[in-house]
């Protein structure tokens, strides 16, 4: 009875969504100079490690997102990565899903 009343008031409460965990890696495009990476590379020599020929620094963004399906989550994260997390003029990104978490019904 209570459930029925609730459904009338707000049927969306009964839509099933799942929580997805994902990680977006943002990295400078190969053509873009990474002075911070170069400075860090030079510190590897001071640490006594030879042979580091390249070191480039990117960002890792971990996020959790509620979505109806993995595909839905992917579309949202792709949009977010293209328009916010990375600047396509200088950066590329890759997306990786982590294990799906428990399904949520809110």
């Amino acid at each position: 009875m209570l459930g029925l009343t609730k459904e009338k008031e707000n049927p969306i409460n009964f839509l099933k969504v799942s929580l997805f965990k994902a990680r977006v890696f943002v990295h400078l495009r190969p053509s873009v100079l990474d002075p911070a990476g170069e400075a860090t590379r030079s510190a590897t020599k001071r640490l006594g490690i030879d042979g580091v020929t390249q070191l480039r620094i990117g960002k890792s963004i971990e996020l959790e997102i509620e979505a109806a399906s993995k595909e839905d989550a992917r579309l949202k994260i792709e949009l977010m990565s293209d328009r916010l997390l990375a600047n396509p003029v200088i950066e590329d990104w890759t997306l990786e899903f982590k294990d799906e978490q428990k399904a949520l019904t809110t």
Binding site: D34, P35, N87, V89, I90
Partner: peptide, 16 residues
Amino acid sequence: TELGLLQGALTRNKNL
């Protein structure tokens, strides 16, 4: 540039 009203991007100074 982020908004797209101007082209290109501004990045970290070469000498940091």
